[in-house]
């Protein structure tokens, strides 16, 4: 039996007091969770803290404007080009993945320490930018198109594959300077998020049909290899499984 209780008597607030008080007093990093005192068996519900919600692949863009989305798709299909190994990053859903990530809690770095003063340090001191991922994309995509207009008289998305590759390589090396954002920092976040989308569980919008997992031979969300661990140097030929299962396991509609 649960004796979980609010901590008014023990050193916190009751739920009612909390709801009636200023939300600004909430501990930001812990969201809406409130201080609790536990004795005896803590109460919990199965899955109660498992908030990962599959994204809707077919919904409208959640963060990007249609123009921004087209630019991102034009980037990710060059970072991960279609070839005999896999479809492109665009067709694998990487742009959808990035859009949904930017619209979620990652997009404004709500979990990240964002107090100033912001100042450049040594490389070893890491990312010191005051910009959130949303800002990095918004500024970076606009600056990229500005650059392409000035130098190619075209938008990035309208350039050919080899031209896009050349520009991406120059962003990566820092040979192009963008107006409103450090070009290397912009390239790095796009590359990181593209790879996250390509290789993450497909429920987040990328890695459609587990294409990346099939490509490298990663079995995905399996959890018991006790019967396989001592089968050394052998191709175990697992078909991958996602957190949502597999399409061919579902009942046909």
């Amino acid at each position: 039996m649960s004796k979980t209780r609010d901590t008014a008597k023990a050193g916190g607030l009751t739920r009612r007091q909390l709801l009636g008080s200023s939300a600004a007093l909430l501990v930001g990093a812990s969201g809406t969770a409130r201080a609790l005192s536990y004795t005896d068996t803590p109460e919990w519900q199965p899955f109660s803290n498992i908030a990962a919600t599959p994204v809707d692949d077919d919904a409208d863009w959640q963060f990007f404007t249609p123009d921004e989305a087209a630019t991102v798709e034009a980037i990710v299909e060059r970072l991960i080009p279609a070839d005999d190994l896999s479809v492109s990053g665009k067709d694998a859903g990487c742009a959808v993945f990035i859009d949904r990530q930017l619209a979620g809690l990652y997009g404004d770095y709500e979990r990240r320490y964002m107090h100033g003063p912001f100042q450049a340090g040594t490389p070893q001191q890491g990312d010191q930018s005051p910009l959130t991922p949303q800002q990095r994309y918004r500024l970076g995509l606009a600056s990229l198109d500005d650059h392409c207009r000035n130098t190619q008289d075209a938008l990035f998305k309208d350039l050919g594959g080899e031209q896009r590759d050349a520009i991406l390589a120059q962003l990566e090396s820092g040979d192009i300077a963008l107006d409103d954002i450090d070009s290397v920092a912009f390239f790095e976040i796009v590359l990181q998020n593209t790879m996250e989308g390509f290789f993450a569980d497909p429920m987040y919008g990328g890695n459609r049909d587990m294409v990346a997992w099939k490509m490298v031979g990663f079995p995905g969300a399996r959890y018991d290899y006790r019967d396989y661990i001592e089968r050394h140097n052998e191709d175990l030929a697992f078909e991958p499984v996602s957190i949502q299962g597999r399409g061919d396991w579902s009942t046909p509609a």
């Binding site: 930001g28 519900q45 899955f47 990962a52 979990r111 569980d201 957190i243």
Partner: peptide, 26 residues
């Protein structure tokens, strides 16, 4: 409630977004 087998196999959530780690915002 936190590490259920149905959802723990999530590299994006746990390794990339550092779900179980102290939030640097805190």
């Amino acid at each position: 409630k936190d590490f259920n087998i149905a959802s723990v196999t999530d590299e994006l959530r746990y390794a990339q977004r550092q779900e179980l780690m102290l939030r640097t915002a805190q």
